[in-house]
Each structure stands twice: as C-alpha cells, then as structure tokens.
Amino acid sequence: MTMKHTLVALVEDKPGVLTRMASLFRRRGFNIESIVVGRSEVPHLSRMTIVISGPTTMVEQLRKQLDKIIDVVKVFDITAEDTVARELALIKVGATSSNRSEIIQIVDIFRANIVDVAPDSVTVEVTGDEEKIDSLLNLLRGFGIKEMTRTGRIAMARGGRRLPAAKQSSKAEGKGQKA
C-alpha cells in the first residue's frame, strides 16, 4: 500500500554521512520528499527525519539499506506511531498599506508570526504540520508570494519513551566490540 512514511535515523556526526545516505537514495531509486538533519540529545549523534512515499515493502527495504550504512546507528519507521510532526516555513508576501491588516488577521488565525515588515512586503513564520502550512499558503497566495522556504518535517513519538537505539548508542553506555 502506497502511503507517506516518516523515518527517523540516528547517525554518527561524521563527514560524509549525508553523502552516503543521498548516494543510497539515488542508487537504489528511492525518491525522497524531504530530509531534515540536526543535532540530537546524544553528543556525536545527529537525528534525521526522512519523509518518503511508497509501498510499505519499498520503504522497509529503504530502512534496511540505510541501516546497513556503518555510520547510521539506527533507523525507525515511526509512521504507525502516535507522533508529533512539525515543519517550519518562512513566507514573504507582497503587502501594501491597504491589505497589510488583512494579512495580519490571517496570520493571527493560524497562530503564525510576522518576523519582518517592509513597505512592500511582510515575512511570515509559521510552524505546524504540512496541512496547516499548505492552507496558510493557499490563503496568502492571493496577495502574491515573493519567496518561500520550508524546512521539511521533523517528528518525534509522543509519550515518555525514547527511541531504543538512542539509549543503546549513547557512547557513555555503549560497549566496544571484541574484534
């Protein structure tokens, strides 16, 4: 069944790790919708959120192939879990003195913020899931969108537990392997 999957990967913070992952996506023909990389709670580990659409078997194959990369500590498919997922967008909208207040009203309804104002534009910062950002974009489109950038989805499972590998892989607790 084709659906959108959210994968979370914990990777070692080493040069080339993103290249290794990107090379794998390309080589095995996986089409990624978004990928976000940033620090995690564990030193030396980065956390990636990858969004991909495809049949479950294909996504499972991607997960396993990613897991084989030595610098990738663990990959989870958290699609079926109860998660918090957010994306941030910056949207620069054309504005005049006559319609600025209308824009501000819309921004307020979406609990978004205006982070920059100029005589002919306002820049809106909005956080939420993709649908919320898409709806805001639709409403703002009529004013003329001059520039837009979106971060892609970051996600985390709800509740108190951590991803198991985040615990295991923490260097302090990790044990060396007998070679």
């Binding site: 990777v11 030595i70 990738v72 500590v73 663990k74 295991q168 260097k171 060396g176 070679a179």
Partner: peptide, 8 residues
C-alpha cells in the same frame, strides 16, 4: 584492542 561501532 576493540572497535567501537555503534552503527554496526
């Protein structure tokens, strides 16, 4: 004497 490869 040992390797430390958390991802392997």
């Amino acid at each position: 004497s040992q390797v430390d490869l958390p991802g392997y």
